[in-house]
């Protein structure tokens, strides 16, 4: 008992005051890319050719954040002249098109569906479905339940049964072998319901694009309401997206 009390005192109060207070992530974290559209087109082409995810459009210089794994190669390759990744983790968007950025970003709050705010603004229960995810997205979603983020304080919870859920949060490129289970889980959620695509895999197949064992795009199967890009999305990216979209 004494050990419990001693450790409790040691540990102190750890919950973040986000979103009331902003959080600064370490400078190496790669969030929203800042794109220099005036840079040499040859440099853009070079970055586009080197990009392992084929996420850069050589002609327009736009980056598809739904494909991007934020590996940072384009920033290194262009020595920051074409792309610089900022530490801004606010990456969630409401439409697939908004993920393709030329450096400007859609306002998630403005695009959020108002009836969702009314329905789920005070309480949102989600069923997480891992559909061939590498477990990084899953792990950094789970982390929202640790004391630092303490997701429950916002009235948002991940629940065990789809019957208790208001929607599904999907990670992974949706293997052929998980397609049926994913669709069954979705059907088991009572309407109205939301669909969240989390991570590059569920949006575009992520690192696995081109494999014939995956669907590679959740939107092909279900109408996605909220996209959270990243590989995996930082927990704050997910938290920001959930709070902005539903609150």
């Amino acid at each position: 008992m004494l050990k419990i009390i001693k450790n409790r005192l040691d540990q102190g109060y750890r919950t973040s005051s986000y979103p009331k207070q902003p959080i600064a992530l370490y400078e190496r974290f790669r969030g929203r890319p800042q794109i220099n559209r005036q840079c040499d087109p040859a440099l853009i082409r070079q970055c586009a050719e080197a990009c392992p995810q084929e996420a850069i459009d050589a002609a327009s210089g736009a980056i598809d954040l739904g494909r991007c794994t934020f590996c940072g190669l384009c920033e290194m390759q262009s020595q920051g002249k074409f792309v610089q990744f900022s530490q801004n983790f606010e990456l969630g968007v409401a439409t697939r098109a908004d993920l393709i950025t030329d450096g400007s970003y859609a306002d998630l709050a403005g695009h959020a569906k108002q009836h969702f705010k009314k329905l789920f603004g005070r309480s949102l229960q989600l069923r997480q479905v891992s559909a061939a995810g590498c477990n990084a997205c899953e792990a950094d979603t789970n982390v929202l339940n640790t004391p630092f983020f303490d997701l429950s304080r916002f009235g948002i919870d991940f629940v065990a049964s789809p019957r208790h859920a208001d929607g599904i949060h999907v990670t992974g490129p949706i293997s052929r072998n998980m397609k049926a289970a994913l669709l069954t889980t979705y059907e088991a959620v009572p309407s109205p319901k939301v669909v969240i695509a989390s991570g590059a895999c569920s949006i575009s197949g992520g690192p696995f694009y081109g494999s014939d064992e995956i669907v590679g795009d959740l939107n092909e199967l279900l109408p996605v309401d909220l996209y959270i890009p990243g590989c995996p999305p930082h927990p704050l990216t997910t938290l920001h997206a959930l709070l902005t979209f539903f609150k």
Binding site: P173, N177, F208, S211, I214
Partner: peptide
Amino acid sequence: YQHRGVERLLPTVPQRRLPIICEA
């Protein structure tokens, strides 16, 4: 259920994709 065809995919992609796939 998580089968993504990794071993099938790896020999078919350009080298630059290998570390990204292996990290996943």
